[in-house]
Design a protein around this nucleic acid. Structure first.
Length: 205
DNA sequence: TGAGTGATTGACT
DNA sequence: GTCAATCACTCAT
């Protein structure tokens, strides 16, 4: 009996993204990440969600943490592409970013929402909700659901317990919409938010 | 050194 | 719809 296609991909390592994937321009990466899978292998089990919403934060971008230069907090943003940038916001919520652009350039892509794929029971327990729609619909919700903390700041997302994998073969987001970003007070009109149009999993339609 | 702010969420009116 | 929670960081004394 032959393996399923998905299993074959996993077994061959084909779902792993090449490091160069993360080196593409930040805007293109923000779009390309839609449909990819965020995977976290934890001791309690494997947690997986499909990325359905992202926001780009660029150099020379007043809304970006990197705008005023490198600090201990945002140092990961200036690291090599394909790393994680995790920070604390409002004193209690953690947000997960994929670092992009060359080392020394402070750009990243914020992951705002996921479609839960695997480890749903663990996510429910971590989030304290029985509503599947509320598991990963928001940047701080998804970090809580997938057990992502500031301890993951700077980790390599190409390989390791926390990583990003390519979409299943043949999978493509139906339609991609581009909108202004959410929750910021500077550069509010720049259409740097990307989402899977019509997806019920995005933080705001 | 102290005040102000923030890439959010959930509880409450 | 409004608003509090809570702390790292920035900026102005």
């Amino acid at each position: 009996m032959p393996d399923s296609p998905r299993r074959a991909i996993r077994a061959s390592g084909a779902s792993r993204l090449p490091r160069g994937f993360f080196a593409q321009p930040t805007l293109e990466l923000a779009r390309a990440l839609l449909g990819c899978r965020l995977v976290h292998e934890t001791e309690a089990g494997r947690l997986i969600g499909r990325i359905v919403e992202t926001e780009a934060y660029l150099r020379e971008d007043p809304a970006s943490h990197s705008f005023r230069g490198r600090t201990p907090r945002n140092a990961s943003m200036f690291g090599p592409p394909g790393r994680a940038y995790v920070y604390l916001v409002y004193g209690m919520h953690e947000c997960f970013n994929v670092v992009s652009a060359a080392e020394g350039v402070g750009e990243a892509v914020l992951v705002r929402a996921l479609e839960p794929l695997e480890g749903l029971q663990l996510m429910h327990a971590r989030r304290g909700t029985s509503d599947v729609r509320e598991l990963c619909r928001g940047p701080a919700k998804l970090t809580q659901a997938l057990a992502i903390t500031r301890a993951h700041d700077g980790v390599d997302l190409v390989r390791g317990a926390l990583r990003i994998e390519a979409p299943e073969r043949g999978f493509e987001p139906a339609r991609i919409a581009q909108r202004p970003r959410i929750g910021i007070s500077r550069a509010v009109d720049a259409p740097l938010r990307f989402l899977v149009a019509g997806s019920p999993w995005v933080s705001r339609p």
